[in-house]
Simulated scan of single mutants.
Amino acid sequence: MHDKLEYKSIQPKQDLSYFVDSFWCIRNASDKTLETIGLPDGRIDLSLLQSPEESFRIMLLGLGTKQYEKGRIPANSLTFVISFKLPAVEYVFHESISDLLNSGKKLENNFWEFNENDLEDFELFCEKASLKIESLLLKEIETRKQKLFSLIYQTHGAMTVKELSEKSSWSSRQINRYFNTYFGISLKGFCSILRFRASLEHIAKGKLFPEENFSDQTHFIREVKKISGSLPKELFQNKNDRFILLSALSTK
Rank of each mutant, 00 (worst) to 15 (best):
G157D: 08
E113N: 15
L61Q: 12
F125P: 05
I26Y: 05
L231F: 01
S171Y: 10
N102Y: 11
I133D: 05
L16R: 11
D45R: 13
E211Q: 08
E108Q: 11
R242W: 03
N213G: 01
A129W: 05
W24H: 14
K132E: 14
K70L: 12
R242E: 03
T251F: 00
L164F: 09
N180A: 10
G206V: 04
T181N: 15
I227T: 02
A204C: 04
S130G: 11
L63D: 09
E95W: 04
L48R: 09
S247Y: 00
S150M: 07
Y18S: 14
Q154I: 02
K147Q: 06
M59H: 15
E142A: 09
E166N: 10
S230H: 08
I152M: 13
D99L: 07
I44C: 13
F56T: 12
L137H: 05
T181S: 13
D99T: 14
H202Q: 10
F190Q: 04
L124K: 14
T33M: 10
I193A: 09
S228N: 05
I10M: 05
K70M: 00
N76G: 02
W112Y: 12
K252D: 02
R177K: 15
N110C: 10
L148D: 05
K205Y: 00
V92G: 07
N213H: 11
H94C: 06
S247M: 02
Y178S: 10
Q11W: 07
G157L: 10
F122E: 00
S130R: 11
C191N: 14
L86H: 12
Q14E: 15
F122Y: 05
D241L: 01
L249T: 00
L107C: 02
F93S: 03
F220E: 07
F80T: 01
S230A: 03
E234N: 02
N28P: 14
E116Q: 15
L5R: 01
R173A: 01
K4A: 13
E90V: 13
E113K: 14
K225P: 01
S17C: 11
T251M: 00
R57T: 12
T65E: 15
R27I: 04
K162G: 04
F243L: 01
K132I: 08
S130W: 02
K139H: 11
I10Q: 07
R27M: 08
G157W: 11
N180Y: 11
E211N: 04
K105P: 07
A75I: 06
C126R: 06
K85T: 05
F149V: 02
E123D: 13
L131Y: 00
L245S: 04
E54P: 04
D216N: 15
R195L: 07
L119Y: 09
F214R: 02
Q146H: 06
R43C: 14
L46A: 10
F149K: 03
A248Q: 13
